[in-house]
């Protein structure tokens, strides 16, 4: 079995006063061993409920959640032993030093040779010199690295990362992303939630868009782009924009529009039209400065999904 996580028909509702709030609505997904799987959606989409079920602190109303073959409700302790959690919103016990706190957490996971493991992780995360500081003394970047140390104490098969770079400066965020990539290289399965679309696209092997408790789509970043984009836009920067627009006019599946002097935007409905566009360009006399395909950002893809398929209830 290659699935690290398998959720089948998971549903969860909460009572909020007299209202019933649907947090998860018949969700099914699977995460393969060794992949970075992104769970993206707005606040209140159901991400936290799903993670809470997976880490054994919330029971689903119906359906099942299984991690490495163990049921999250029936075999909670075994599931919890195989995973760990790093949250950008987590706190740290202020009075204990970094080393003491990690020793405490290592005892929770019954880590063998904990002293050595802690020293190795602290060195790996560049925190060894600060091991006697209390968590309150750490900068936000150091604190996040400390949380990653905590998350790796039991060498978890599954690491749940809940907005691991929130509030970090650019350098620290780059460091954390490098650590995440290294973890994948070492075979850890990673479930990542983030509001940073650049980060999601850069790190994740596969992504699920979730909103109003429903999975809107699952796929690789490229597949998700393909699902939402039916057309490509090519920007041509040239000295003969009128000629190019005229040549492309009337061509099936192609729309050309002069956006500004020397700039033509050509919208095509398939990749097979590239040759036709090049031919049109060649038939006009003038300078071609650049030809670029205008790719939508992953943020735009995300917004399109949220607005088209689940943004409005």
């Amino acid at each position: 079995m290659d699935d690290a996580i398998s959720v089948r028909n998971g549903s969860k509702t909460y009572r909020s006063g007299k209202e019933t709030v649907i947090a998860l609505d018949d969700i099914s997904l699977s995460v393969k061993k060794g992949e970075i799987f992104g769970l993206l959606g707005p606040n209140g989409a159901g991400k936290t409920s799903l993670i809470s079920i997976l880490v054994g602190i919330l029971n689903p109303d119906s359906g099942s959640a299984v991690i490495f073959g163990k049921d999250c409700v029936e075999e909670t302790q075994a599931v919890q032993s195989s995973l760990n959690l790093v949250s950008g919103f987590s706190g740290a016990i202020g009075s204990l030093s970094v080393e003491e706190a990690l020793t405490y957490y290592a005892m929770l996971y019954n880590v063998k040779d904990s002293k050595k493991v802690i020293a190795r992780l602290l060195k790996q995360m560049n925190l060894y010199e600060s091991r006697n500081w209390t968590a309150e003394d750490l900068s936000s970047g150091m604190r996040q690295r400390y949380f990653i140390c905590r998350g790796l104490l039991n060498d978890p098969k599954l690491l749940v990362l809940d907005e691991p770079t929130v509030g970090l400066d650019v350098e620290s965020a780059i460091d954390v992303r490098k650590i995440i990539r290294d973890l994948r290289a070492k075979g850890h399965t990673i479930l990542l939630t983030t509001h940073n679309m650049f980060e999601a696209e850069e790190l994740c092997d596969r992504i699920a868009f979730i909103n109003h408790g429903k999975i809107l789509a699952i796929g690789t970043p490229e597949e998700l782009k393909g699902k939402i984009i039916s057309q490509r836009t090519i920007e041509i920067h040239c000295s003969m924009e009128k000629c190019v627009a005229e040549q492309l006019k009337g061509m099936k599946g192609v729309k050309a529009q002069i956006k500004s002097p020397q700039i033509v935007h050509v919208t095509v409905d398939s990749y097979t039209k590239t040759k036709d566009i090049m031919r049109a360009l060649a038939s006009c006399n003038g300078e071609i400065y650049s030809v670029n395909e205008m790719e939508p950002t992953f943020e735009e893809i995300y917004l399109k999904f949220m607005n088209n398929k689940g943004g409005k209830k």
């Binding site: 880490v55 054994g56 602190i57 302790q77 919890q80 032993s81 959690l85 949250s87 919103f89 987590s90 706190g91 740290a92 016990i93 202020g94 957490y105 929770l108 996971y109 019954n110 905590r150």
Partner: peptide
């Protein structure tokens, strides 16, 4: 104390 330090969720997610 775990609640005040926002670590209670982490504690209950441990074994």
């Amino acid at each position: 104390e775990e609640y005040w330090s926002k670590s209670l969720g982490y504690l209950f997610a441990s074994p």
